[in-house]
């Protein structure tokens, strides 16, 4: 795993690159540890409060530790009417956790998201950004098996 300091160093020359750096750190660590935010603040020469303000503004960035695989379920209106609630229930049951929680083994986190732009195949979930469309409760086990 790359050190977050090395990752940050790759972006300090990019104007406004702190968000790009956060993306890259999160790709490695699945969330933004506090030390990484402080290090980024130093590297980009902004107050820690400002770096933290950026990290917490965007729903894609997480300052809380998350599982290795982040499952997001779209709850926007088109997915909502297509049965997102049943998919939520099936995922919660399959993983034994509630929305917003992480499995005890640290493998999966369940989160809500708004539209991910795959609305030709509602309801939609994403796992680590990869979309799965037309999800039904009975497809859940098969999808999870790949992770």
């Amino acid at each position: 795993m790359a050190d977050y300091k090395d990752i940050i160093a790759r972006y300090t020359a990019v104007p406004g690159g702190i968000i790009e750096a956060f993306h890259a750190i999160q790709k490695e660590m699945s969330y933004l540890p506090e030390e990484a935010i402080i290090a980024a603040a130093e590297a980009f020469k902004v107050p820690v409060a400002q770096a933290y303000g950026v990290a917490t503004f965007y729903s894609y960035l997480s300052v809380k530790s998350r599982g290795k695989n982040v499952i997001r379920i779209c709850e926007s209106a088109p997915c909502h009417v297509a049965g997102a609630a049943e998919v939520v229930a099936a995922l919660e049951k399959a993983l034994g956790i509630k929305m917003g929680e992480t499995t005890p083994d640290g493998k999966f986190t369940l989160e809500f998201t708004e539209c991910v732009g795959q609305c030709q195949a509602t309801p939609v979930i994403t796992i680590n950004g990869k979309p799965y469309g037309d999800v039904t409760p009975d497809k859940v086990a098969g999808i999870l098996a790949a992770y």
Binding site: P15, G16, G17, I18, I19, E20, F22, H23, F44, Q50, G53, V54, F57, Y58, S59, Y60, L61, T113, E114
Partner: peptide, 25 residues
């Protein structure tokens, strides 16, 4: 290419500009 980070308001052009600059959108 710059990547957004899941904020609907960043589609608003001045929020988008703030985001490219590395700020809250």
């Amino acid at each position: 290419v710059r990547m957004g980070a899941g904020a609907y308001v960043c589609g608003e052009e001045t929020a988008l500009i703030e985001s490219i600059e590395g700020h809250r959108g």
